[in-house]
Write a protein that binds this DNA or RNA. Structure first.
Lengths: 215, 215
DNA sequence: ATACCAAATGAATAATTATTCATTCATTGC
DNA sequence: GCAATGAATGAATAATTATTCATTTGGTAT
């Protein structure tokens, strides 16, 4: 294993605190994906980053903090990706819903290493209130955003007998379940196929505003 | 298979061994839920079982084996629950689909400790091919079973423009995503509500054969 | 009772791991 | 150039953990 410099600018022996922290967080993502959370140690992360033993304590004080910051990193990245997608999307509820679905099945969010990290933290969430709260608040906020768009779509589209929160909860759940398929049986499905399964769900609820793609 | 441990001259010893192993596996489930997989040690499991240090090596040889057997245990339990539900369900595809959905949101499957264990193993699955294969094969088999029932429902119900595999994949994904909600924000949803969200999905696909429950 | 044997124990061991810190090294301002 | 500063190192330490095994326990057959 070469020293594998992660990014161009980090080739310098000394880097800014921010750069090193980011480098270490990315190394943590790779290590958790490669070794699992249980076998991710200070050594595996430091080696993955091409740096020395003591570096993590220098920048994060403890392993716990490193892991917490790693969870915050992928949470933030998810959040930013959603906002960016919404700001680039058209004004109609259908366009905005589709934009959010797209985020879930495109890079940088839908990366297999990051999916492994999500599941690892979810698996620990019952044991660690800190993780659980962060995961739950992302989930609930995303669901609220989806529900608001579904509600708009119901009103504007004149749909009857639909519950926005039920639709949103189902869509959000379907997304996370499809992430599992992409994680554990990546050969059985592409990201595009997964996306289209979500769109088919939206089409079954809002047939006049979504068309089923060939899957 | 030989669990008929009723009475017999020399059978009691093996029976006791099986009992201990089950006891230890159940303790492992509790420990993973309570401490996380990363902080589940031989000590935490032994303590949870109310037994001594060396007991796990005596019955499982190693920690790895204990964890693998724990995964197999919840996989088997899931499988058996499905078969039992199907054998007790009516003959129509709708009844059988509903029976399978019910399994996912009832005990013993939908227990919060066991959900935590599923997610913990999923999180480790990329790192451990053994886990990944077991998880993937359960997932794929369940999906196949659902798809066959969906296909029957499409044919018998005269539904047009539906893809059985897409419906099945979406339903299975939705279930796993709802498990996540029950795990990380149990206050936001009951098992019954989660079940009804799945039934609403089936109702949107097969409106003449499922009725939306008040959610 | 007694002898026997597997099950169970828990202290000891070997291996692994997080954390510390004295030292080395690179960059910056003068 | 030359200090001065702080980033980075990696060997040492302290703590934790999986595994082993000599010993004890409890049940069974004789």
């Amino acid at each position: 294993m070469g020293k594998a410099v992660v990014n161009g600018p980090t080739k310098k022996r000394t880097a800014s605190k921010q750069e090193r922290q980011l480098q270490l967080i990315r190394a943590t993502v790779r290590s958790v994906a490669k070794n699992g959370l249980a076998d991710t140690t200070m050594s595996t992360v430091a080696r993955e980053a091409g740096l020395s033993q003591g570096i993590i304590n220098l920048h994060f004080q403890s392993k716990d903090r490193l892991l917490a910051e790693t969870l915050r990193y992928i949470t933030d990245e998810y959040d930013v990706s959603c906002r960016k997608a919404l700001s680039g999307a058209g004004p109609s509820p259908a366009e905005r819903l589709e934009a959010l679905v797209d985020v879930d099945f495109k890079l940088p969010v839908c990366d297999r290493n990051k999916l492994a990290v999500w599941f690892a933290f979810w698996g620990e969430s019952k044991a660690r209130p800190t993780y659980r709260k962060l995961c739950a608040s992302r989930d609930i906020q995303y669901r609220k955003e989806l529900a608001a768009l579904c509600q708009l779509q119901i009103e504007e589209g004149g749909y009857e007998g639909l519950d926005a929160m039920v639709l949103a909860t189902g869509l959000s759940a379907m997304t996370e379940g499809l992430w599992l398929d992409l994680l554990i049986s990546p050969r059985s499905m592409t990201r595009k196929q997964a996306r289209n399964i979500c769109v088919a769900y939206l089409a079954s609820a809002f047939p006049h505003h979504f068309s089923v793609q060939p899957i």
